[in-house]
Design a binder for these strands. Structure first.
Lengths: 154, 154
DNA sequence: TATTGTTATACTCTATAACTATA
DNA sequence: TATAGTTATAGAGTATAACAATA
């Protein structure tokens, strides 16, 4: 049963992270994991996921954008756009329209899409407050700036 | 062919992000993506992936740790540990040893595992320098601190 | 009963290559 | 030939549930 010598391990809580301790690299991973889980949970009741929200946001902010430029803005290859657009079109939130160059498409949100995004913005704001709850407003703003610097240098 | 009116889109580069602009949430996603791709590329020549490195680091820093506590430290469920441990054991970098409570296992790195980690630390340091190249040392240190605050509140 | 480790399963994200239609 | 969009495929990461062994 229970004994005091039960644990022969030579470690104690909390668990140590070795060379990962206090690195930007592992901090990014841990913070990202916490963020994405909170966002997934916040969007699920609306039938949304983080990538769907990003795609809709970008289309609303850039009416007429082509799928390949959307994919580029989201940081991945062209082929990732198709299933996201299929889903958003299925939900009647956006439409793929033909342009003058018939190889290319122009993406536009429907009124329902714009309305949905407005609704999601409230969820997004609450999510942002949750993940920055341990930070002052100045720290949160600084964090966003530093993250953007890291992201841009790629 | 080429015409000046070719683009009827009412957007211009760079692409706008709408409500995602300047949020910690989307900044985290973008910075994480940049980081993880750099780390994957850095580790690939050694046959390693970021989760394998994290697992090995934590086992070396916590000799005798159990798989379930390793999984907890890495932020996911128990079942994720098994394939990572299979792989590391296959590589002869760690061993699963039986403890007093025979339900539980004690994980320990082999000498080869410790040597491998030492080698990986150099790659990790170079990786850390690359992803923080746009930041002063003070900013990088501050960023790591802020990220840890975000991660911990979960 | 509860806990540990494992297996099975499924879903998402991501990357690559190949196909089509247009230019 | 080059580009845009799509499809097919595969691999990795993650989550849940169920199982066997042990307590």
């Amino acid at each position: 049963m229970h004994e005091n010598v039960q644990q022969l391990n030579d470690y104690d809580a909390p668990t140590a992270f070795g060379p990962l301790t206090a690195t930007v690299s592992y901090g990014l991973k841990r913070a990202y994991l916490r963020m994405i889980r909170d966002l997934e949970a916040a969007l699920a009741p609306e039938g949304f996921t983080p990538p769907l929200l990003a795609a809709l946001s970008i289309v609303v902010a850039n009416p007429g954008i082509a799928p390949s430029r959307l994919a580029e803005a989201m940081g991945h290859g062209r082929s990732r756009a198709a299933p996201l657009l299929d889903r958003l079109e299925e939900m009647r939130l956006l439409a793929r329209e033909a342009g003058a160059d018939r190889r290319s498409l122009q993406l536009r949100a429907t009124p329902a899409g714009a309305a949905m995004l407005a609704r999601l913005e409230a969820l997004l704001a609450a999510h942002e407050r949750r993940i920055t709850e341990g930070l002052s407003p100045e720290e949160a703003s600084l964090l966003a700036t530093l993250l953007e610097k890291v992201a841009r240098e790629g």
